[in-house]
Write a protein that binds this DNA or RNA. Structure first.
Length: 493
RNA sequence: CGGGGCGUAGCGCAGUUGGUAGCGCACCUGGUUUGGGACCAGGGGGUCGCAGGUUCGAAUCCUGUCGCCCCGACCA
């Protein structure tokens, strides 16, 4: 595996094949038999749970509460917001019948034509419509606002081409939906949640995110503004990792959600929505992995420390006592630790396997160490080995985990910075953008220019980034017209 | 929906001018091993995607059909 991966990355011929192999071999997920769908395996799901728990706590700290809305949406709801339906209509799975019957011409079952639904139901591609239809009954007065709701669920979008974690027909996500009495409040909430996402990505996933605003063509269907966090993968491509939308009164109007304000006047409610999905798993994998497999930042690693004894025959008892005790001490410190004394796998196999799975720290003790009172420590991020005194080793682990977390983040940040360029010559741009990287360019603000760039290079405007000066704008490199914004352009997943 | 490719054991593949269906990994049994993915011996497992056709004989040739993968358009 390691060798195969190495060859692939070295040649850089097929980053996506490397990615696919890694996802499968590291036991994260596999392609389901059902078209475009994915089976998330227990190890992959453990990482997702860690993401869920941490994000959920952050949402709640901002006053958000969890709720659940139905998976099936009547077709008529979807047609109420014009832009929204246009954006999603092409990728909806539709339920038309509610019953099967025995096949009269042979084996198996067939759809019972008598069980045709009067109104078709759509499997949710996102829940704005059904939630705003529900909000109508919840919102009457300014005193009912704001409503800050989130749901963890699955959604379905019938994508033409799918890729494990990055784009599957069905995916797991959270979608937050808020209703507010004022435009300002809704807009602030959309921006606030983007910050929550960016902080989470940095603190937990060790992924540096570019925050910014989408151009009109890249905006969510039905939004007035879409805010985004964009990460750079190791091949220099961008990955949109989370979005937050200011929806204005579009859904308030479409679903007739009105309230009486403090001045006793009727007004439509203002909305935001925001989401991140299992795509974050893809971001995690493609940001940090190396030739030996996955590299997990300690804060998302289901196993942070693995302890492996090397023993002959029935010597295992001696190690169980010493290393079992160490495992207990570490887990008393809140560290997720695994003691692997299985005798059906050789040590070399275990080393390679835990590296493949990205476990941040490995502790190994053999007969020599037992005599000398030492233990070998290896950190996954640098692959460096060190022999340390066994006594007090547990004191060193927590700070080392933090150090690893930070190092992984800094590595990713450095890579992004090294692959971010400013560019004002279109011929030069066309050559270089193929190789990947973020290109900071001045843009004339027109969709024509965006379309031209996409047609020539497959690259798109990722966002108008925060933290990049918008002063002294020059001319657009494509049209030569005066620029209205400084944007990041890149090829993306 | 366009352009390319592939369907042979659980997975990855070979199979020449048509002639007894094979290899590696995984699996099972026994033994020796165990400081970087162990070795030896033995064993089980396949209507060659499906349906027709040509032929004494088809995984192989022909026709049809179904499914999957890759590259585009669509997209978090």
């Amino acid at each position: 595996m390691a060798k195969e991966l190495k060859d692939l990355t070295k040649r850089s011929v097929d980053y996506s094949r490397w990615y696919n192999e890694l996802v499968v071999k590291a036991d994260l997920a596999e392609q389901a038999d059902v078209r475009g769908c994915m089976v998330i395996k227990p190890y992959g799901y453990a990482i997702w749970e860690c993401i869920q728990q941490n994000l959920d706590a952050r949402f709640k700290a901002t006053g958000v509460q969890n709720a659940y809305f139905p998976m099936l949406i009547p077709k008529s709801y979807l047609s109420k917001e014009a832009d929204h339906v246009e954006g999603f209509a092409k990728e909806c799975a539709v339920v038309t019948h509610y019953r099967l019957k025995a096949n009269p011409d042979g084996d198996g079952v067939v759809v019972d034509p008598a069980a045709k639904l009067e109104e078709e139901l759509i499997i949710r591609p996102t829940s704005e419509t059904t939630i705003w239809n529900t909000f109508r009954g919840w919102i009457h007065s300014w005193r009912d606002l704001p409503i800050l709701c989130n749901q963890w669920c699955n959604v379905m979008r019938w994508e033409m081409r799918t890729r494990l974690f990055l784009r599957t027909s069905e995916f797991l996500w959270q979608e937050g939906h808020t209703a507010h009495a004022t435009r300002q409040e809704a807009e602030d909430r959309a921006k606030q949640m983007l910050e929550v996402y960016a902080d989470f990505a940095k603190d937990i996933l060790a992924i540096p995110m570019v925050r910014g605003v989408k151009s009109e063509t890249e905006r969510f269907a039905g939004a007035l503004d879409t805010y985004t966090i964009e990460a750079m993968m190791q091949d220099g491509k961008a990955l949109q990792s989370g979005t937050s939308h200011f929806l204005g009164q579009n859904f308030g109007k479409a679903f007739d959600v009105k309230f009486v304000n403090k001045e006793n006047k009727e007004e439509y409610a203002w909305a935001s929505s925001w989401g991140v999905s299992t795509r974050l798993m893809g971001a995690l994998i493609m940001t940090h992995s190396d030739d030996n497999g996955l590299v997990l930042p300690p804060h998302v690693a289901p196993v942070q420390v693995v302890i492996i004894p090397i023993f002959k025959g029935d010597e295992v008892d001696k190690f169980d006592e010493v290393l079992g005790g160490l495992a207990k001490k570490l887990s008393a410190k809140g560290i997720r630790v695994k003691y692997d004394n299985a005798d059906n796998k050789r040590p070399g196999f275990k080393f390679a396997d835990y590296e493949l799975k990205g476990v941040p720290i490995r502790l190994v003790m053999g007969g020599r160490d037992l005599e000398n009172g030492t233990i070998e420590l290896m950190r996954r991020d640098t692959l460096e080995k060190e022999t340390l005194s066994f006594d007090g080793i547990e004191e060193r682990i927590p700070s080392l985990l933090e150090e690893i977390q930070e190092n992984i983040y800094n590595k990713a940040l450095k890579h992004r910075e090294e692959c971010t360029y400013t560019c004002s010559n279109y011929e030069d741009f066309k050559q270089r953008v193929k190789e990947g990287g973020f290109f900071i360019c001045d843009w004339d603000g027109t969709a024509e220019t965006e379309a031209q760039i996409k047609a020539d290079t497959q690259a798109t405007i990722r966002c108008i980034p925060y933290g990049v000066s918008q002063e002294n704008l020059r001319t657009d490199m494509v049209s030569g017209k005066p620029a209205v914004a400084r944007v990041i352009i890149a090829r993306s997943y």
